[in-house]
Amino acid sequence: MRQPSDLRLPLLITGLAGVPGYNAFAYFRKRLGDSVLAIRPHRNWRLTGPGILACDTDDEAGMDALWDEHRFQSVLSFAGSCHLKACELDPQMAERINVQGTRNVARNAARYNARMIHLSSDLVFAGRSGGNYSEADEPDPVTVYGKTMVVGEQEVQDICPAACVLRISLPMGPSFNGHAGAIDWIESRFAKNKPATLYFDEVRTPTYVDCMNRLYDRLLRRSEAGLFHAGGPRAMSLYEIAQVINRVGGYNPKMLKGCPRIEAGPMPPRAGNVTMNSDKLCAVFGEQVFAPWPNQHHLIPEHRTWHHQRNGDTGSPERVVELLT
């Protein structure tokens, strides 16, 4: 194993507008300063600041020029379009960003022999087998997004075999625009006293972004390659996740609505139980690398009206940040 000082710099982070990239940039920039750069799409012109550059990953010439200028030695490949409906309506856009963009990052990582960590998704699975997916299970995505993520994974492994590919679930943390992540979107509805409808039967394995950042830090210093599942140890339905946010945030419990996926309509298609088994990743470190989300046993919903029971705790948005991100 490499020593901690062996993180190879400079480090590039793609996908700054998303939850993983936004939080990883803050984490690594604080620790490594100007040796860390991040890119955001040109269209996200409001996302500016020290170390932030505008470059689209699907711009082959632009990406080549960026790498030639900075000669990155490590890259966190987090760019992608995960908006399910947008991908269904515009498959070419999904292919351009999730496949072509990923290919450009992998090609440059191989060109400069850079350490590469690439993020994929649990939505490469349909959720028809009861969850607990391992890396040996065959992907069977039900969405355009999931299909392009499968292709992107293969692009990385073909072009940059030394890369580490992580399939993640829901990273629980803030986003730049306040609605890109699971917590942000759900909380934005409740904060405006607007209803939010979540599914009883879409089940995920969420993770705290702090746990993910520490994982990236450790993996960047190591040489593990190939595919790993990186889901948390606690399975939560989308409805249960919203219950926790509603109660911890002190929001109106009547604003949370729930239904099975079949009642949501055909667009976009929804996966079922896509919980992941992350034993392979934990075995690398000889320990559980993720705290369960939520990390307090009393915040695990026990039934569908659990969030109505406040037990004298009024909750607040500050508590959401403190306990859930």
Rank of each mutant, 00 (worst) to 15 (best):
L166W: 02
L166S: 03
L166N: 02
L170C: 11
P171N: 05
S175K: 10
N177E: 09
G178R: 11
G178Y: 10
G181Q: 09
E187M: 10
E187I: 01
E187D: 03
S188Y: 04
S188T: 04
R189H: 15
R189W: 02
F190M: 09
F190R: 08
F190L: 15
F190T: 08
A191K: 14
A191R: 13
K192P: 05
N193I: 08
P195W: 03
A196R: 04
A196V: 15
T197Q: 08
T197G: 03
T197Y: 03
L198I: 07
F200N: 09
E202D: 01
V203S: 00
V203Y: 02
T207Y: 05
Y208Q: 01
Y208T: 07
C211S: 14
C211D: 15
M212T: 10
M212C: 11
N213Q: 07
N213L: 07
R214E: 15
Y216A: 12
D217N: 12
R218E: 15
L219C: 08
L219M: 12
R221Q: 15
R222C: 10
R222V: 02
S223G: 12
S223D: 15
E224N: 13
F228D: 08
H229W: 12
A230G: 12
G231Q: 07
G231Y: 01
G232P: 10
R234C: 11
A235G: 06
M236H: 01
S237H: 03
S237A: 06
S237L: 03
Y239D: 03
Y239M: 07
A242F: 08
Q243I: 03
I245L: 13
V248M: 12
G249H: 09
G250A: 04
P253N: 02
L256H: 00
L256I: 01
L256V: 03
K257G: 00
G258W: 13
G258T: 10
C259G: 02
P260R: 11
P260Q: 08
P260T: 11
R261N: 06
R261P: 00
E263F: 13
E263M: 14
E263T: 07
A264M: 13
A264E: 11
P266E: 12
P266L: 11
M267W: 14
M267R: 08
P268A: 09
P268E: 13
R270D: 00
R270A: 02
A271P: 00
G272H: 04
G272E: 05
V274Y: 06
M276R: 04
N277S: 09
S278T: 14
D279W: 04
K280L: 15
K280E: 13
L281Y: 08
L281K: 14
